[in-house]
Amino acid sequence: MKTPISIRRGTVAAVFIDLQEEHRKDERYLVDGFGDILANVQRLQAAARRNFVPLYHFAYIVDLAEARPFHPVDASGKSAFSDKDDPLTAICAEVAPAEGETMLVKTEATAFGNGAFADRLKTAGIEWLVIAGVWTEACIDATVKDAVARGFRVLLVKDACGSGSAAMHQTAILNLANRLYGGAVTGTLDACRLLAGDTVDAWQVEGSVPLRFTYENAARLYDEL
């Protein structure tokens, strides 16, 4: 259900996950509607900067020198995605970190892999994380769930996330919304308003798994979030 929420200044950070060139240039890993996602991320980043919200940028980099059982590889033996030597792992220029912003590398799906990121946020007094990026059912899902498990409230910006298809993305958002305890789901415009200190109506989970979506109604329920 939608309820009014606001976020106290100084308690929020913005987290951007894997907005890398491979998702618009590598035919194997194209994200559906990536251009629109990047445009919404730009809006979020601008709102965060205007309101002195810290920005954290993550890139997924795979180094197969570390043991990774069953990890997919290409014909040359390199990682099939996000290989450490692939220039397409670069963050897209239009959403890249500005001077002074934090750029971090993760080696697994979640941004909370080694615990250091959570400790850093807690030390800074962060309670809310505005999360955007790709892929929704993979690295966004893992990061959101780990954030909640560590006691952070997550503002999941649905139209600033994406996956390989609309269906993959929408059902991933619905699955997260069903268990986004303590957090909320919004679109980009409302997220920008929250970053500015406004109060907005945002979707928050109530009860146990309220979104019983089907093939037929998933898109409608997604739009209603």
Rank of each mutant, 00 (worst) to 15 (best):
Lys2Pro: 09
Ser6Ile: 03
Ser6Leu: 05
Ile7Tyr: 01
Arg8Asp: 13
Arg8Phe: 04
Thr11Ser: 12
Thr11Lys: 07
Val12Asn: 01
Ala14Glu: 09
Leu19Ser: 01
Arg24Lys: 13
Lys25Gln: 15
Arg28Ser: 09
Tyr29His: 12
Leu30Trp: 04
Asp32Ala: 10
Asp32Val: 02
Gly35Pro: 04
Asp36Val: 10
Ile37Arg: 00
Arg43Ser: 10
Gln45Cys: 09
Gln45Phe: 03
Ala47Val: 07
Arg49Ser: 13
Arg50Ile: 02
Val53Asn: 07
Tyr60Val: 07
Glu66Trp: 03
Ala67Phe: 11
Ala67Asn: 07
Phe70Leu: 11
Ala75Pro: 10
Ser76Trp: 10
Ser76His: 13
Ala80Ser: 14
Phe81His: 11
Pro87Ile: 08
Leu88Val: 08
Thr89Lys: 14
Glu94Trp: 00
Val95Ile: 07
Ala96Gln: 10
Pro97Ala: 07
Ala98Ser: 15
Ala98Thr: 13
Gly100Leu: 12
Thr102Met: 13
Met103Asp: 09
Met103Lys: 14
Ala111Glu: 04
Phe112Ala: 03
Phe112Asn: 05
Gly113Ile: 04
Ala118Thr: 07
Arg120Met: 15
Thr123Phe: 12
Glu127Phe: 00
Leu129Asp: 08
Val130Gln: 04
Trp135Glu: 09
Ile140His: 02
Ala142Pro: 05
Thr143Gln: 05
Thr143Leu: 03
Val144Ile: 07
Ala147Thr: 04
Phe152Asp: 09
Arg153His: 11
Leu155Ser: 04
Leu156Ala: 06
Val157Arg: 04
Cys161Ile: 00
Met168Asp: 10
Gln170Arg: 14
Asn175Leu: 05
Arg179Ala: 12
Asp198Thr: 06
Asp198Val: 06
Asp201Pro: 05
Ala202Ile: 00
Trp203Thr: 06
Pro210Ala: 03
Leu211Gly: 08
Phe213His: 14
Tyr215Ile: 05
Glu216Ile: 11
Ala219Asp: 14
